[in-house]
């Protein structure tokens, strides 16, 4: 084969191979990119699904808590008042006018108070009451119910100009607060609950502090079955892009801090 012909063939082979390789790389890149992108979208979809699942769970838990509170309120408070009113009415003696008048006044007061408490309770029956009254008012309402039990001193402070977050996020924040307060009531043996809400341009910070007996956080990192409620709160915070921090000192109480970035709070769906 002449030298010139050989050189042409080598050029032809090199050129064709390079171009075909380029084509193969292009197609491979296309496959790779699409696969990665699809995987990313699937993951995002999954995250959205689990967020929605958690949201639904939170709604159900809030509802459950509300019903528990209502049943307790009816049994301990309204029921007692109405029973007392009934007792007053059944023990009325027309032959004792002074006593009769007092009993009527007392019964009216009791029935009036029962009506007032029932009206208050009915507000809490609406599943959208957090959205309706806003986060600050919902927290105040929650604390009011705790205070009414007579076992706790409560303090609520809101700092900075409050702004609404989207409904779903407010619901999750409220549920985390409710769960934390429940934990304090069940385990902390404290007398005081302090809630601090801080609205800043960057984030919304909610801190819940008690002066109870505190607990050792070490098992949280070792035993997966320990502190399921806390893990649940942590997961929920993560799903809305928020930070969740818990600190506790034995004998000095516990503090839970939830930090929700404003950007995440307003842009996530």
């Amino acid at each position: 084969m002449p030298k010139e012909s050989r050189e042409i063939i080598i050029t032809l082979i090199a050129g064709t191979s390079t171009l075909l390789l380029l084509g193969a790389l292009m197609i491979s890149f296309l496959f790779l990119y699409r696969n990665r992108h699809r995987k990313l979208l699937r993951e995002r979809e999954q995250l959205k699904l689990s967020y929605e699942r958690e949201l639904l769970k939170s709604q159900l838990e809030i509802q459950e808590q509300t019903f528990r509170h209502i049943s307790q309120e009816i049994h301990d408070n309204i029921g007692q008042m109405l029973s007392l009113a009934k007792l007053n009415l059944s023990t009325m003696d027309p032959s004792l006018p002074d006593n009769l008048e007092q009993k009527i006044i007392d019964s009216k007061k009791l029935v009036g108070q029962a009506i007032y408490d029932l009206r208050n309770l009915s507000h809490g029956l609406s599943t959208d009451y957090i959205a309706d009254m806003g986060l600050v008012r919902a927290i105040e309402h929650e604390l009011e119910m705790v205070r009414k039990s007579g076992n706790y001193e409560t303090l609520f402070e809101s700092e900075g100009k409050s702004y609404p977050l989207d409904k779903q996020r407010e619901l999750i924040i409220y549920r985390i607060l409710q769960e934390t307060v429940n934990n304090i009531i069940k385990h902390a043996a404290s007398q005081k609950i302090i809630i601090h809400l801080h609205y800043s341009q960057e984030e919304l910070t909610l801190s819940i502090t008690d002066n109870g007996k505190g607990f050792d956080l070490t098992p949280l990192n070792q035993d997966a079955s320990f502190g399921l409620g806390i893990r649940n709160m942590y997961n929920r915070a993560q799903l809305m892009g928020a930070g969740f921090k818990i600190s506790s000192t034995l004998g000095h109480g516990t503090s839970v801090v939830l930090s929700v970035p404003v950007e995440a709070a307003n842009t996530r769906t």
């Binding site: 032809l12 064709t16 171009l19 084509g23 292009m26």
Partner: peptide, 17 residues
């Protein structure tokens, strides 16, 4: 794509080939 990428070198060298 593959057909034309593969053919391009020959077409460019056609006058020599």
């Amino acid at each position: 794509l593959f057909f034309h990428l593969g053919d391009l070198s020959f077409d460019l060298l056609f006058n020599l080939l």
